[in-house]
Simulated assay, not measured.
Amino acid sequence: MKRILIADDHEVVRSGLRAIVEMQPNWIVAGEASNGEQAIALALEARPDIVIVDYSMPLINGLEVSRRLRALRQRTEVLILTMHEDEELLTEAVLAGVRGFLFKSDARKHLIFAIEALLDGRPYFTSALVEKLLHDYQLNKQGKSGMLLTSREQSIVQLIAEGHTNRSISAVLKLSVKTVETHRATAMRKLGMSSTAELVRYAIRKKLVVP
Score class of each variant (00 low, 15 high):
residue 23 M to W: 00
residue 23 M to D: 12
residue 25 P to I: 01
residue 28 I to S: 14
residue 28 I to V: 15
residue 30 A to W: 07
residue 32 E to N: 05
residue 32 E to W: 06
residue 33 A to P: 00
residue 34 S to T: 14
residue 36 G to Q: 10
residue 37 E to V: 04
residue 37 E to R: 14
residue 38 Q to L: 05
residue 38 Q to V: 11
residue 39 A to E: 09
residue 41 A to S: 13
residue 44 L to E: 15
residue 46 A to E: 15
residue 47 R to I: 08
residue 47 R to P: 00
residue 47 R to D: 14
residue 48 P to Q: 11
residue 49 D to Y: 07
residue 51 V to G: 04
residue 52 I to G: 03
residue 52 I to C: 08
residue 54 D to R: 05
residue 55 Y to K: 11
residue 55 Y to G: 03
residue 56 S to G: 10
residue 56 S to D: 11
residue 56 S to Y: 00
residue 57 M to L: 13
residue 57 M to T: 02
residue 57 M to S: 07
residue 59 L to F: 11
residue 59 L to N: 12
residue 61 N to F: 14
residue 61 N to T: 03
residue 62 G to I: 04
residue 62 G to C: 06
residue 64 E to V: 00
residue 64 E to Q: 15
residue 64 E to M: 15
residue 65 V to P: 04
residue 65 V to W: 04
residue 68 R to E: 12
residue 69 L to I: 09
residue 70 R to E: 09
residue 72 L to F: 06
residue 72 L to C: 01
residue 73 R to A: 13
residue 75 R to W: 01
residue 77 E to Q: 15
residue 77 E to D: 08
residue 77 E to I: 01
residue 78 V to R: 02
residue 78 V to L: 01
residue 81 L to F: 01
residue 82 T to H: 01
residue 82 T to K: 01
residue 82 T to L: 02
residue 83 M to P: 01
residue 85 E to N: 13
residue 85 E to S: 13
residue 85 E to A: 13
residue 86 D to V: 00
residue 87 E to N: 11
residue 87 E to R: 07
residue 87 E to D: 14
residue 87 E to Y: 13
residue 87 E to C: 11
residue 87 E to W: 14
residue 90 L to N: 02
residue 91 T to R: 12
residue 91 T to E: 11
residue 91 T to Q: 09
residue 94 V to Y: 06
residue 100 G to N: 05
residue 101 F to S: 04
residue 102 L to N: 06
residue 103 F to T: 02
residue 103 F to K: 09
residue 104 K to M: 08
residue 105 S to W: 00
residue 109 K to I: 07
residue 109 K to F: 08
residue 110 H to I: 00
residue 110 H to T: 01
residue 112 I to K: 12
residue 112 I to G: 00
residue 113 F to V: 07
residue 113 F to I: 05
residue 114 A to W: 02
residue 114 A to R: 02
residue 115 I to M: 15
residue 115 I to P: 09
residue 115 I to A: 08
residue 118 L to N: 08
residue 118 L to S: 06
residue 119 L to Y: 06
residue 122 R to F: 06
residue 123 P to I: 03
residue 123 P to D: 03
residue 123 P to K: 02
residue 124 Y to A: 06
residue 125 F to Q: 04
residue 125 F to T: 13
residue 125 F to R: 08
residue 128 A to M: 02
residue 129 L to T: 15
residue 129 L to P: 01
residue 131 E to N: 12
residue 131 E to G: 08
residue 132 K to L: 13
residue 133 L to E: 13
residue 135 H to A: 12
residue 136 D to L: 15
residue 137 Y to Q: 14
residue 138 Q to E: 13
residue 138 Q to Y: 13
residue 141 K to C: 05
residue 143 G to H: 12
residue 144 K to D: 07
residue 144 K to P: 00
residue 145 S to C: 05
residue 148 L to N: 08
residue 149 L to C: 03
residue 152 R to P: 00
residue 153 E to S: 07
residue 156 I to C: 09
residue 156 I to Q: 06
residue 157 V to G: 09
residue 157 V to R: 10
